[in-house]
Design a protein around this nucleic acid. Sequence first.
DNA 1: TTTTCTTGATTGACGAGTCAATTAAAAACC
DNA 2: GGTTTTTAATTGACTCGTCAATCAAGAAAA
Lengths: 200, 200
Amino acid sequence: MNMPKLGMEPIRRAALIDAAIAEIGQAGSLGITVSQIARRAGVSSGLAHHYFGNKDQLLLAAMRHVMADYSEEVRKGLKAAGTPIERLNAIVRGGFALSNFRPDTISAWMNFYVLALSSDEARRLHRIYSRRLRSNLTHALRPMAGDRAPEIAARAAALIDGVYLNVGLSTEVPNGPVAADSVLGAISAELGRPKSGRQG
Amino acid sequence: MNMPKLGMEPIRRAALIDAAIAEIGQAGSLGITVSQIARRAGVSSGLAHHYFGNKDQLLLAAMRHVMADYSEEVRKGLKAAGTPIERLNAIVRGGFALSNFRPDTISAWMNFYVLALSSDEARRLHRIYSRRLRSNLTHALRPMAGDRAPEIAARAAALIDGVYLNVGLSTEVPNGPVAADSVLGAISAELGRPKSGRQG
DNA sequence: TTTTCTTGATTGACGAGTCAATTAAAAACC
DNA sequence: GGTTTTTAATTGACTCGTCAATCAAGAAAA
């Protein structure tokens, strides 16, 4: 039944993190048990503790993973972007890319937001995400918006979070491109007339 | 020590609801105990169960109360509003009025959003809030935005939620008027040039 | 034989909800 | 006006389940 192969640690860690995200998404809260997560990952609860120490660490690892996926998506898009407008598109569309825009992932994000209210480490992680998003947006907007870039970037960041929230709470199937267009439309309105919304 | 007066029910209910909101705000999560809430309200845990049946009902009552406060604030502003622009101002500023914009209240809102992911009744309540906000905004925007009113209203609603989120997670002292101006600024940008942001 | 991986039983704490008992106001009765 | 009964308010101890975390032990690789 049990087959101890070597080098299982990274595999188990990844499986447990994925399972945690899925469980949070399904339950809609962090009030899930380590045993549930472990069962979904196909291991015992003891093993989860063995690798992560405690429940909080496992949850935080899941949060880091979700953030890493998001960052990766944005970085990928940014690398291929030349003009400021393309950079803007990359940032917004990256956030609404399929991988970060499934119901499970959105629910996980929402729960992590709230976790940041009570956990220092979660707050730290959220800060990193929040700062980077704003910084990316500000840079991309600078050539078009000048001094107004930080202000518009802050608003755009809030709008992204808000759209996330609404999609997470809606029963409709999430549609990333539509959501991204909505945000991009709002930004282009702030910039004055010049339309920037193109579909890629 | 104990002094059974008659007609205590409404007083106790209100005290327990206030205590629940304060505890949620302080803990930053719904993982608080009925005993904690009861203690803060100055009664025993048994009494909380006596009046509310169970923890969920108490939490939902707190959610309803928070929503009622918000609705009241908006209704008050709307009553005094004549022009569409005044209506818009009232809706946005009402949401960011002092009573709904204290750290405790914001935390409670955030937790209730997430609760709506797992509780049918909470989802129902959130829906009501969400629909009303969008409907109010759409009506106010109709004369200025015509067909685009629903679209702009949806975006504005998402932005309001996003700003709430950011303020809730920030360590800075919440500043309602500034937040409201930010949202109103974004709306007026969507409407084209005509500036609408006035301070009241 | 040492290390890595793994389990499942166990422990210990904690918390929601119940319940019997107590107090005092109010109402009913004489 | 006084006595009895009912009803509202209130407590805190108790039950019962749950769950995070620990631990001893086993099974396979190295």
